[in-house]
Nucleic acid binder design. Structure first.
Length: 274
DNA sequence: ATTCTACCCTGCAAGC
DNA sequence: TGCTTGCAGGGTAGAA
């Protein structure tokens, strides 16, 4: 489920239940994620108090007391989720990891496809290979049209792949790239180096607006989620073109087309996106 | 240096 | 009903 808004709302949702709580026990049922969960993660975490949670791109960083330079790194991959569970809650098939607290609540990691990861960073996160090369956060001021325009000069790669490259900007996944390219009127297959500064400015403004709106909606989703209802309303948001191949363009009624870039679906309007 | 391809894994929907 | 196929919100390593 996770694109950036869902990771952000996951962070907001678990924070009140997890911050300042001391870890009483750790149970790993399936170590084989994208990379194996470290063998010693149980002993590293047990007895420690979680003092801070950060999101960087689609990664979550959980810091322990006296250890601001070390952190637990969690990524949800394509299908992962975190929820707050109670001791009596049933353990489902893909609930791979539990972090149990002294107050009895459990931070439970689930990931059917196991594309996510749970790693221990024992060097400053900024130095970690997975985090060091990440581009700016999409909601930061640093991310603007000029930045994208500058960064894209001379690139022949399709603009959609360019804006989904985490080295360029983090947190823009397939859905948001598809949507923002549509509202900005940019053909997904246009060479990144040939998109104008003005178009990039439109794209950035639209991407930020869509992400912010999704985060707002995600809050509602997460309250249900944490409460144990587990009904993600993520898709309830209005997507204009994503997943709507063959339907009329909401702007001009031309039938929406689909191309595949990097083997990922890209829906677009051939009339509105040039 | 940039761009492309294959791959990690399970679940689900569509088609036969 | 049951089988096969293709697709899914991500991101890396290594090849071209």
């Amino acid at each position: 489920m996770p694109e950036l808004p869902e990771v952000e709302t996951t962070k907001r949702g678990i924070s009140p239940h997890v911050l300042q709580q001391r870890i009483a026990n750790v149970t790993i049922r399936q170590r084989s994620l994208r990379w194996p969960i470290p063998d010693n993660i149980e002993q590293i975490l047990t007895g420690q108090r979680i003092t801070a949670i950060e999101r960087r791109a689609k990664y979550l960083l959980l810091y322990l007391e006296h250890n601001t330079q070390k952190a637990l790194l969690i990524h949800l991959g394509m299908s992962g989720s975190l929820r707050i569970a109670k001791p009596d809650d049933a353990i489902l098939k893909h609930d791979h990891a539990d972090i149990g607290f002294e107050n009895g609540l459990i931070l439970r990691y689930s990931d059917p496809r196991r594309f996510g990861c749970i790693l221990w960073l024992d060097t400053p996160p900024i130095e970690n290979k997975l985090l060091s090369h990440l581009g700016p956060e999409p909601l930061s001021e640093e991310f603007d049209g000029d930045y994208l325009w500058q960064k894209s000069r001379g690139k022949s790669i399709a603009v959609k792949q360019f804006v989904m490259d985490q080295k360029v900007v983090t947190g823009i996944g397939n859905i948001y790239a598809t949507e923002a390219l549509f509202t900005a009127g940019i053909h997904p297959n246009k060479a990144a180096g040939k998109v104008s500064k003005a178009k990039y400015a439109l794209f950035v403004a639209d991407a930020k607006r869509i992400l912010e709106r999704s985060i707002t909606q995600g809050g509602t989703t997460l309250r249900d989620f944490v409460g144990g209802d587990g009904k993600p309303g993520y898709f309830a948001q209005q997507l204009l073109v994503y997943g709507r191949k063959g339907e009329p363009c909401p702007n001009c009624a031309t039938t929406l087309k689909e191309i595949r870039l990097s083997n990922r679906s890209s829906v677009y309007c051939s009339q509105c996106q040039k």
